[in-house]
Amino acid sequence: MSHRVEAVGSSARAGAAVRSAPQAIGGPGGGWLGAVDPRTRLLGAIAFAGVTVALSSLAALLMALTLAGAALLAARLPAGPTLRRMAMMDGFIVFMLVLLPFTMPGDPAFWVFGWPASWAGLERAAAIALTANAIVLMLLSLVGSLEPTTLGHALARLRCPERLVHLLLFTVRYITVVEDEYRRLRRAMKTRGFRPRTNGHTFRSLGYLIGMLLVRALERSERILQAMKCRGFTGRLPLLDDLRYGPRDVLFIGTTVPALGLLLTLDALYVGLV
């Protein structure tokens, strides 16, 4: 019982995050990053990710994580929910990280039930954890704080294929609609006494539920296309906002590029020393 409530609850929260990510957690206009152009933020996150995966020393990776933390503060995202998201990702990879010390050859650091855990493996696991967390935190801070539609527009202005951007904008628009429908159907099932368990009845019911969502999605999309044609849809969605680079972008680039350069230099020095 509690499990089902939790499952429905968590999915509700997750979907709502796409709709209201910026409103709920900071948002454009809030924080120092608010005035930085979405394109600059997107490119900044990509450059940071590219540099961070190239780092190999733990010291440089720790600094990268610190930079990501600074971005979190600059975006004025509430630390709690954002860090919780980051921790959820760690939950996914924890088993892989725990295995690494035991599967990588090297000087043993300690033993668990007679299995040696190597220093090399520990270091590798720490490096992966630092890299993954730094990049995700930077991504959530720089790009995750944008309005989802703005992300689409920024991608379009960066010469992303038009069809892909349209698909993204449509998906963002209808996730909440479909999610509301899903919750309505789930509530109806609950009213009729449906409790998810590990059994055939549950799998069949959820399968019917997803099938029904798809059928309704198809019918809805037909109505959408009719309505759009009626309003003269020519196959192109006009992008209304015009993004402009400003002085804040110069400042952002002026701090990001030296910071990334510093990371690379520090890493090269450290690797050279060891």
Partner: peptide, 23 residues
């Protein structure tokens, strides 16, 4: 371009389906 709306709504549906947890 005719197929963008249907692909978008179905894409959203699969996004929502990935939120469904099975015990």
């Amino acid at each position: 371009l005719e197929k963008i709306p249907v692909a978008g709504v179905l894409s959203a549906t699969f996004f929502v389906a990935a939120l469904v947890h099975v015990p």
